[in-house]
Write a protein that binds this DNA or RNA. Structure first.
Lengths: 146, 146
DNA sequence: CTTGACCTTCCAGTGGATGGAAGCCCTATC
DNA sequence: GATAGGGCTTCCATCCACTGGAAGGTCAAG
């Protein structure tokens, strides 16, 4: 089967499939004319990736999950560890967003939203009261971001 | 003042300041030797940007907020609209993450996490029961992502 | 005069794709 | 046999918001 069929059957777009091949997540065969040929197993693998990505797993974690999926002798503990790591990352992200949301919602709430220039949102941004974040926003996070 | 002082006083790293200049968010002066020279107003503007970014505003929204900040005749409604748009984006993102979190937490919960291969997480990923997302994960979102 | 801390620019890479151009391949129709 | 169209290929650029690092200029202290 060609790439567009594989895309339709797996739910992963052709461009993305080519990208996944490029980074070594799938290895479709090739026909004499250079066209990719997808087996059932490739489609199945792509669908697996699609679902893992839909749960927010990063590519590296998808790669690890894929390897475990194909490893008959895997320990479920390994799978669980990857998923737990991701869950923690999601929780951290949610916490960040909720903190932002709370501040922001208060400000929006307090803003008259009329044609006058006075605005608590602007005031908050221009005032040192709301410190420029001591840590975290800038700089690398060692592990996968969500 | 030079870039490292501006960085220390605004909380925005030198690299980021250079980047902000490149995309036109700040316009420091230049000394004869090519060094950037930052005025108080530049530092103030950088701190503003730092706080806006810390609230998750995208660069485009920061640009708009900056323009409104400097516009004495602004209508607070304009500010509020930008902030509300961002708030909606955050809410959408939180909703996405919570949906992921819920599914994932259930799976992690159900996984024994021992040395046996059987694993509900893997089973869920390999099974079409969990559909590969009908819409949303792939494809452009017209507006700012959070 | 050298050392070392600054500063500059430029290029590359991050994650995870997406958009588009240029050009081959295949099938159908005239 | 020519041509039109769709599908396929590769490659390069773009998004977001930086970050890292190399190569080299500048400055004050010792």
């Amino acid at each position: 089967m060609n790439i567009s069929d594989a895309a339709a059957r797996s739910g992963v777009p052709p461009k993305t499939i080519r990208y996944y091949e490029e980074i070594g997540l799938v290895r479709p065969l090739r026909e004499g004319n250079g066209y990719r040929v997808f087996r059932e197993s490739d489609v199945h693998k792509l669908a697996f990736l699609g679902r893992a990505r839909a749960l927010g797993f990063g590519i590296n974690r998808c790669r690890a999950l894929l390897a475990l999926w194909e490893d008959e002798a895997r320990a479920s503990a390994e799978v669980k560890q990857i998923a737990s790591g991701h869950l923690d990352a999601i929780d951290a992200k949610i916490a960040d967003l909720r903190a932002m949301r709370e501040t922001l919602a208060d400000l929006v709430q307090a803003c008259a939203g009329d044609d006058r220039p006075d605005c608590p949102i602007i005031r908050s941004l221009e005032t040192s009261g709301n410190p420029p974040a001591k840590e975290g926003r800038f700089g690398r996070n060692g592990d996968e971001g969500v």
